[in-house]
Amino acid sequence: MSCIVDLCIVFITLISVAASLTIVRLVKGPTAPDRAVAMDILTNITIVLLVIIGFYFKRFIYLDVALVYGILAFVGVIALARYLEGGL
């Protein structure tokens, strides 16, 4: 049982390292579309992080937060895209 918990926390650490690597692109990115790509990637990473943390806590009902991000995260990206192409 302890082995399982250890594996989960290792995955959580690796994925949060991936999240901090996308922040490098947010800081560096020369134009706004680069930063928008970083946000698009970070939403997917966040969904996975929420699911694995919920699994680490063994709480089934915590999955609802990840569901909200899974269905709503792309609306913000589409708002950005429509502004950038001059459609707003």
Partner: peptide
Amino acid sequence: ILAIFIVLTAPIGASALARASYKH
């Protein structure tokens, strides 16, 4: 269900963003 949502939404966001950055 969450996997189905990701499959439906991620390509839409990415294609809209690619088109927008070309037009930008």
